[in-house]
Simulated scan of single mutants.
Amino acid sequence: MTTKKTLIGLQADRFRHPLDLEATNALKQLPGIDIAIRSLLGSVAEQFFYLNNIASSVLVSEKQLPHLYKLLIEAAQILDLEPPQLYVQQNPTPNAYTFAMRGERPFVVLHTSLIEMLTPEEIQAVIAHELGHLKCEHGVYLTMANVLVLAANLLPAWGTVLAQSLQDRMLQWVRCAEFSCDRAALLASQDPKVVMSVLMKLAGGSPTLAPLLNLDAFIEQAQAYDSIGKDSLGEMLQAAQTAQLSHPVPVIRAREIARWATSAEYQSIMDKQQSKEGKKLGWSNW
């Protein structure tokens, strides 16, 4: 088994997707957006979600599900990041998410249904994806996006709190942010097929079907989806399909990872690194 490289001194801007940077800058240009989000959510909401998570999930540690804890620690070390708390929650919907409002007590949650259909390497890629949100300091906006996705039933008056246009902007931002975090997953797994396999299983997997899925066929499917968008009608249909989603469709994410894994940018990051057993390299030029 090849020893993974530890990305000492890794900066988020080295792997941040340009769409993420563009969307984040667009949000920051909205007058008072940060203040509005913090006022709406505030410490009370942050405390609520934290306590609710503690009450309904299992905290992973050296004593509790240590195999998952080991995956967390290794991924955090590779990405040069302080590991957050990791929880496992019983839920039939395959999902994982991160909460980090003010940088205090950030935590990652993995649903049991997701864990059940992934290999250990794929679970670590999911964890690294969530760590990517922390590395890129997506905190405030990410919390708002998670409220949209996870807590709509707790905020029935959502539509009257913020305009529909802001909701659309938040969903657009989180879709772009996901591309950066997929890159973080690749940096941790150091194998694009691992990340693409996760995306394939999210698209059509289950504990029984997951081992039967064909990754090469899924990659061909992603290429077919690309070809549809080459004309104006295809572009319009693809845009309409994703407009209200919190994540880009899996085939697009797989395509982006395949492209970035062969890019000079990715290779430059990996070439400047060391294996865990090797000598530390300087980052003075970063």
Rank of each mutant, 00 (worst) to 15 (best):
F99R: 10
A96K: 06
I54D: 06
L79E: 04
A75E: 08
K70I: 04
R16N: 11
G32W: 02
I54N: 08
L27M: 15
G42C: 08
A96S: 11
T24K: 12
I54K: 13
S56P: 00
N53D: 07
A96E: 07
I35G: 04
N52D: 15
A75Y: 05
F49S: 08
E22D: 11
N25Y: 08
N91M: 03
L65C: 00
A45V: 13
N53E: 09
T98G: 04
F99D: 02
L21T: 13
L81T: 09
L30P: 00
I73D: 01
K28N: 14
V88F: 06
L27C: 05
A76D: 04
Q64T: 15
T24P: 00
G42T: 10
P92Y: 03
N52Q: 12
N91H: 09
E46N: 14
H67K: 07
P92E: 01
K28P: 00
E46Y: 14
V44F: 02
L30K: 01
S39R: 10
R16K: 11
E62A: 07
Y69F: 15
L71I: 06
L68A: 09
L30A: 06
Y97V: 01
R38W: 02
S57A: 15
L79I: 12
N95K: 06
L19N: 07
S56K: 13
L86E: 08
Q29E: 15
A45E: 10
Q90K: 02
E46G: 13
L30E: 10
T24S: 12
V44K: 14
Y87C: 11
L40T: 01
T93L: 05
Y69N: 15
K70V: 11
H67W: 06
R38E: 14
N25W: 05
A96N: 05
K28R: 15
I54M: 14
T98Y: 04
L81K: 05
Y87A: 04
E22F: 10
Y50G: 05
A26T: 13
I54R: 06
L30Q: 13
H17W: 05
I35W: 00
R38P: 04
N25C: 11
L71A: 06
L86C: 02
P31T: 10
L71D: 04
A75Q: 03
V44N: 11
S61Q: 13
D80V: 04
E82Q: 15
F99H: 08
K28C: 11
L71P: 03
R14W: 13
V88K: 03
Q85S: 12
H67C: 02
Y50L: 15
R16E: 12
I35Q: 05
I33Y: 01
R14E: 15
V58T: 15
E46Q: 10
P66K: 10
T93K: 10
K28H: 14
K70P: 00
R14S: 11
N95H: 06
K28T: 07
A76H: 10
Q90V: 03
F99G: 01
L71V: 10
I37F: 03
V88W: 00
R16S: 14
Q64W: 02
